[in-house]
Design a protein around this nucleic acid. Sequence first.
DNA 1: CGGAAGATCCACT
DNA 2: GTGGATCTTCCGA
Length: 222
Amino acid sequence: MAPGDRTRRAALLPVAFFQRPAEVVAAELLGCTLVSTLDGVRIAARIVETEAYLGVDDPASHAWRGRRTAANASIYASPGTWYVYRSYGMHWCLNLVSAPAGQGAAVLLRALEPLEGIETMAARRGRPLRELCAGPGRLAEALGATRALDGLAMRASAVTVHAPRAHVPPPHVAGPRIGITRAADWPLRFCVAGSRFLSRPPTRNGPASPPGRRTTHSRRAQ
DNA sequence: CGGAAGATCCACT
DNA sequence: GTGGATCTTCCGA
């Protein structure tokens, strides 16, 4: 496949794609192609890991109980809008707002598989291929994305997402969300099965999560 | 008003 | 595995 074919045959995701529950959007974004033209450089990558945050009723969401600050205003914007927040005072993280509108529901992009513009990403990141986009802060840096993207409609921005008309997400695994404490066990993290570009290996929170036998940092359940 | 936590990442041991 | 960078928001005193 020649470079570019993947997105030539694919279409810019319509707003209707995002007018569905965040967990549906999160699962269906897997396998879609993300393209950044920030700084005049074309980057393409395949989405391999996402997380859904459900909004005002989700204790882990920035919109929990309707919380509103200057930093999170965009999470309440219409579906298909970028919500970019600062993490730990240093990293940018990219979300796409989902339905229902005004609920504060959004999908966090957690990992991408690099396809095009790898040299640029490597220059921006100074890390090996596998670590270019394996994490929400990492992929933002690789794309050159910053707060400047926040509040923009994805379709009209320099970072777009594409998929074939009849997009069928690849086989994936759902598991607990990463790096949060409240409602962490809700199975809202979605990973492409077998991908080597994930932020960390997928886990499943089975009902049979056996007691004991757990690392001090319960990083790898299962 | 001070301290701690947070949707993270990296260098170092 | 541990701790530091860095900054906004929240909560208790």
